[in-house]
Design a protein around this nucleic acid. Structure first.
Length: 465
RNA sequence: GCUCCCAUCGUCUAGAGGCCUAGGACACAGCCCUCUCAAGGCUGGUACGAGGGUUCGAAUCCCUCUGGGAGCGCCA
């Protein structure tokens, strides 16, 4: 049987980290088993669902590379199908009209709470024969009143719920719209979902869904309820933490590969391995290796994984995102060096692409001014002679390559009886404006002779003030 | 309140009765390497929530407690 998983976000908020992790596991599981990954937009809440939120989901999934094999399907387009099922259930006595008023329901609830009971509908309309004049009823599902439902969960094992704990849930509102739990059941049934992988906040909904699935005449799929993801402080994810759009992570300079790698390691592990390529995850992921407890996001570790990923990914791949970042900074890269070369030079000293872009500006535009501390330390009058020697040596190099540049600088240092730093640091400040850059030979090689000499001249002038 | 879930370093985790005086990773500290910043290498500290069982033996199995979380909507 072909594995079929689905990611079913509701477009009422942002697609955040938690949603992405769920999507990732669904996608990974389908990929691992040669199955089908389906995207379904759960937009039955017409008040709160927005086209913008749908777009954020679509854009986010696209950026992450989590492509759906089927869909996106929209629940809002499936209303005729939901009505059909409700008609059938009504006719078959599996569902019934309920005429209870909100006040009546409220009263029932308060009474139960007062008796320290779990609030639930008592099924009083189950036996009603006549409609009530002037009241538009809702439709409720007739949940079994005895026995137990066993959720066979791939991460939690068997979880047992007594039917007496459940009640007859509303499946069609008085305005005629179907409700969430019901739509999920019809969709999972119609879409032949074999594995429902979702957050464990849905574990409590599962027995009702199983009961409805059985009313449709099928046995439930395999469930896998994933542990929650918490904020860095261990509390529920909120806007304060990472409950922002995934695209925020793009802005912050993370590669999709890094974010996915980090998220995969939240609740899942494969021995001691920390760094995974997408391909490795696809080969190694298994739902049985997912753990049960919630985990807190750790920004430091995300940053570390980001750097590790950048050190391994093909430069051309990284260049795509670096280009995007530089553009955001307003840097014109038309005249500068190849981005791949910049990536190779910067990758191991950047945690994010945002940092890399900042640190790489000087490759494309000459520094407007020198960082004060560095200038004071390395561009003083005493540095002038060596800078001038450097200029002469560099100008006369026959070939402009990192090894040749290195050799020239080394010779200068030895000739002057000083350390390499005495030669390199003034050069670094001259070309980059600050005291930090990739190795000086590599930096100058990438920058090119013309730019190097021009910037060096300016620095010599500065040191001569 | 009721039902359900969860519980190993600060954090992410390994661990499916003896291999555990509990391993790895992030972060932190020190050292090495070194033209800066990094990367890399080495070293160090810190954890099985508590109490009862079961067993020759428990981080691992059972029970209770404690702590955290979720659900209980004409929200999803």
């Amino acid at each position: 049987m072909t594995v079929r998983t689905r990611f079913a976000p509701s477009p009422t908020g942002l697609l955040h980290i938690g949603g992405v992790r769920t999507a990732l596991f669904c996608w990974l599981y389908a990929r691992r088993h040669g199955g089908v990954f389906i995207l379904r937009i759960e937009d039955t809440d017409r008040e709160r669902s927005t086209p913008e939120a749908v777009q954020v989901i679509l854009d986010g999934m696209e950026w992450l590379g989590l492509h759906a094999d089927e869909g996106p399907f929209y629940q809002s387009e499936r209303y005729p199908r939901y009505r059909e099922v409700i008609r059938q259930w009504l006719a078959a006595g599996k569902a019934y009209h309920c005429y209870c008023s909100k006040a009546e329901l409220e009263q029932m609830r308060n009474d139960q709470l007062a008796r320290k009971e779990k609030p639930r509908y008592d099924g009083r309309c189950r036996t009603r024969q006549e409609p009530i004049e002037g009241v538009t009823p809702v439709v409720r599902f007739k949940n079994p009143t005895e026995g137990a439902v066993v959720v066979a969960d791939a991460v939690h094992g068997n979880v047992v719920f007594q039917n007496t704990e459940l009640d007859d849930l509303i499946i069609e509102r008085s305005d005629g719209n179907p409700t969430y739990n019901f739509c999920v059941v019809v969709d999972d049934y119609d879409m032949k979902i074999t594995h429902v992988i979702r957050g464990d906040d849905h574990l409590n909904n599962t027995p009702r869904q199983i009961n409805m699935l059985r009313a449709m005449g099928v046995e439930p799929p395999v469930y896998a309820h994933l542990p929650m993801i918490l904020g860095p402080d261990g509390t529920k994810l909120s806007k304060r933490h990472g409950a922002v759009s995934v695209l925020y992570y793009r802005e912050e300079g993370y590669m999709p590969e890094a974010l996915l790698n980090y998220l995969a390691r939240l609740g899942w592990s494969h021995g001691d391995q920390e760094i995974f390529t997408i391909e490795e995850m696809r080969e190694l992921f298994d739902i049985g290796d997912v753990n049960k407890s919630a985990s807190a996001i750790n920004p430091d570790k995300l940053a570390w994984i980001s750097q590790q990923q950048m050190m391994r990914l093909p430069p051309a791949r990284i260049a795509v995102e670096l280009r995007w970042q530089l553009k955001r900074l307003g840097v014109d890269i038309a005249q500068g060096p190849a981005l791949e070369a910049v990536v190779e030079a910067q990758r191991e000293r950047s945690k994010t692409l945002k940092e890399m872009a900042q640190a790489s500006r000087f490759f494309f535009e000459a520094p407007r001014n020198y960082e004060e501390k560095s200038a004071r330390k390395h561009l003083g009058a005493e540095a002038r002679p060596l800078m001038q020697q450097s200029r002469t040596a560099l100008a006369s190099l026959t070939e402009w390559t990192a090894p040749a540049i290195h050799e020239a600088i080394q010779a200068l240092a030895e000739g002057g009886g000083v350390g390499l730093g005495k030669v390199a640091q003034p050069l670094r400040v001259a070309v980059s404006g600050g005291g930090v850059s990739p190795p000086i030979d590599q930096t100058l090689a990438i920058l090119g002779r013309e730019q190097t000499l021009a910037r060096l001249d300016r620095a010599i002038a500065y040191a001569s003030r």
